[in-house]
Amino acid sequence: MSQDTFLLDGEEIPFTRGQTIMEAARAAGKFIPHLCWHPDFTGHGSCKLCTVKANGHLNAACVTAARKDMTVENRTPELDDKRRTLLQLLFVEGNHFCPSCEKSGNCVLQATAYELDMMSPHFDHFFPDRPVDASHPEVLLDFNRCILCELCVRVSRDIDHKNIFALSGRGIAKHLVVNAESGRLADTDFSLDDKAAQVCPVGVILTKKKGFSVPIGQRRFDATSIATQVTEAAAAAQEEV
């Protein structure tokens, strides 16, 4: 039986039943911008960066099942324009000051903004007041950069089985909280060995004393763009097979 396919920006992409558009595209080396999606976990559908046009309808690729013969638009000027606006909204919602952020160069938000030619945050900043939590001996939480993707929430709940994180409040006041009456990470059973300690796409959950151990210039997205890396990883995986 021949493999089912769909069209992504005019190219045929094979998929298996149950795969999302995002998963199938990724396996084929096609980059669909994403923030709340992580290849190791199921889709969440909140950041909307992965919005594609599937058979003419806007849908989040990370939570939309691939279907046979569907036509999907991905990197069109119209969609990238919407994505750029979404990025800008995220930048002004928090306090993103890259020059003093130790995640700079390793940050998925920043790398995606580079890929999408975001030249400025455009909107007026909200400058929220979000104090950092330095209580934990090994980990610093800098909430200023949280994009509410809930990766840490999901991983701590579903993989670590600890439920360290949750989102509190609603609307623009929504924010990350930890599982302690004091509100301090030190008063939870969080540990550096938790999978959740490694999953934050931006610079919120930071290992102390490690900050600049990899110098700027040699960081994850310094040499190649996030999109190129997806293509290269798929090619490498193909070679192994």
């Binding site: 000051f97 020059p99 400025s120 007041d129």
Partner: peptide, 17 residues
Amino acid sequence: AVGACAVNGGLPAQRNH
């Protein structure tokens, strides 16, 4: 607007909270 400070307030804007 040239540079982080002109673009988003930059380091001086860290006083905004």
